[in-house]
Design a binder for these strands. Structure first.
Lengths: 150, 150
DNA sequence: CAGTAAATAGTAACTATTACTAAATTGAGA
DNA sequence: TCTCAATTTAGTAATAGTTACTATTTACTG
């Protein structure tokens, strides 16, 4: 993805095009790992030395709200005693986690990666729950509101 | 699951049987949600008022290492720009996240829950990577070592 | 029962993230 | 192109989830 393609993507999402945003997104799509905020800033600082962690978090929030990225983890660690394959519906807006029990999903196999000793697995569906579909853009649990439509 | 069954489970895993552990595990398997440490302690305090958050975290760590629970989230939020269905191998020991691209896994469907507007999904496989299988019990990224075998 | 290794709970520290805000920058319209 | 309003940036400070350290207590082994 070229820099101009990134700019077009931002404009399509009604996001302002700033050097910081371009650098952050450019870094993120060119890394194979799933970077943390710290990993992002350490890379981006090579081209934008003055960038703050604050901007990283703000921008990640904007990207997430715009549907450009998905956070894999989340602040509050949640624990599950059910080790059987079962699955989760995660509302990206209000963060609620709902269980799903589905036979077809309980029989997944992974032929590749034989050297990885798999203990369990789960499927996470990301989307908007019934409530958050009504409220459309609101983000109840996160206080900082970003007025970008999804 | 009865209290004696819990005690037997602990002994089978070579964990010491303490009132705190029994109360924590008992609370966790009797809740449908995926409780956070805060939610756990607020419940457990009803029977063990003196229990500390410290013990909650220590015990959760023990349970996790023993393979009794799986944390759904994690401290460092990781971000992913790849919104296409793709998947992750997560080492429960060293926390490394590896990508998996598998055609069969990219065609999952969820018939139930029609009121949840799904944007994307992913499969997470939990287990031990090649390196951590050798080292068996070590937990590189977490500093507090729990000498419980898996 | 006695000895020992692990567990508990308290205090303090750490660290990822968010809040607040003044200054700078972007994009839309004149 | 210039101006202006609204957003974005980056700094400092605060918050909150989690971990570190440690003295005391408790649970298991023999």
């Amino acid at each position: 993805m070229t820099v101009t393609a990134i700019q077009e993507l931002f404009r399509a999402k009604r996001l302002k095009v700033t050097p910081q945003r371009c650098a952050i997104y450019n870094m993120m799509i060119h890394t194979k790992s799933h970077p943390t905020a710290e990993e992002i800033i350490s890379q981006v600082k090579k081209t934008l030395p003055m960038i703050s962690l604050n901007t990283i978090y703000y921008t990640l929030n904007v990207f997430e709200t715009a549907g450009l990225i998905i956070p894999i983890n989340n602040t509050h660690t949640r624990y599950d005693t059910n080790l059987e394959p079962h699955h989760h519906l995660i509302c990206v807006s209000c963060r609620k986690i709902e269980d799903v029990f589905d036979d077809a999903l309980n029989q997944l196999h992974l032929s590749q990666k034989p050297d990885f000793n798999i203990r369990s697995y789960r499927v996470e569906f990301y989307g908007h729950c019934r409530n958050c579909q009504k409220r459309s853009t609101s983000i109840p649990e996160k206080k900082r509101l970003v007025t970008t439509q999804l």
